[in-house]
Amino acid sequence: MSLGRYVGRRLAITVPVLVGVTALTFSFVHLLPGDAVDAIVGFRDVSAETEAAIRAEYHLDQPVWDQYLLWLRDAITLEFGESPVTGRDVSATIGRRLPATLALGGAAWLLALAIGIPAGIVTAVSAGKPADEVGRLAALAGIATPNFWLGLILLFVFSVRLGWFRVLPPDAPLVSLATVKFLVLPTITLGTAAAALVMRLLRSSMRRELDAPYVTAARARGLPERTVILKHVLRNAFLPVVTVAGLQLAFLVDGAVVVEGIFSWPGMGRLLVRSILRRDYPVIQAIVLVIGIAIVLANLLVDIIYAILDPRIRY
């Protein structure tokens, strides 16, 4: 099967999942207790006109199926209306917050790879030696540390006590020295556990690959150990790491929800938490939809990359 047809088949599987993701997100306000209008306005008392306006905007007088399709049409054109709580345009709010989250998530992901990959290789190659045991415990500690706790401690030590980093984010644009410097602590907070996960995954998959006959065969051919590890073993060991990139994205999003709040970083995660606390459900709905679609597309991309990396998958 050619790569093109594989991608086509994979796309075909993605469509029902996207439908499911949008349907589930759509039903969110309907699953909330009480009337949908009450849910949308966050259970506040509103005037009759406002209620009528919301009924019209959300097409609540139509059958549920039509409501979904109309909502979907609006969602595709990024028309999420206004927040009944803040009165601001939902799409614009998310559009303003998204770059900040992408910057933080991207930085944390790079940090995770930069630490996780070399550490994974070193610990896998030195199996049974002290380096492996130290690495294993460090990774477990990284996974076990609650990111909100780590964030608070970093904030306390480096911002409050040492005064190295600002406590509040600068007003400067996203791409500026002040912002980059501010991002150091949140990036470490968010990236530590992700790095630990990458390291553990790479370590175990490399250990498994190192036992494979082709490794012995490569050594029997007289290839230098560097080539054996970096060209042959790593290429295969990397495949499982690639497959969890989608899960990693979900993991980073979860982390961002917490970490952005600690560092007052104006991203989507903080917006989500704030919206929950003030019952701004249309905003929550839009954020959840963006996250869900992003992860579905990331998984699609991962599978395509996997097929390119692993020739066996194209049967």
Binding site: Y214, T216, A217, R219, A220, R221, N236, D310
Partner: peptide
């Protein structure tokens, strides 16, 4: 290794790196 003394392993399917 591989130059003066070479090996032929059993299970040829696993001897080659699949990628």
């Amino acid at each position: 290794r591989g130059d003066e003394i070479a090996m032929v392993f059993q299970d040829a399917g696993a001897v080659f790196n699949p990628v």
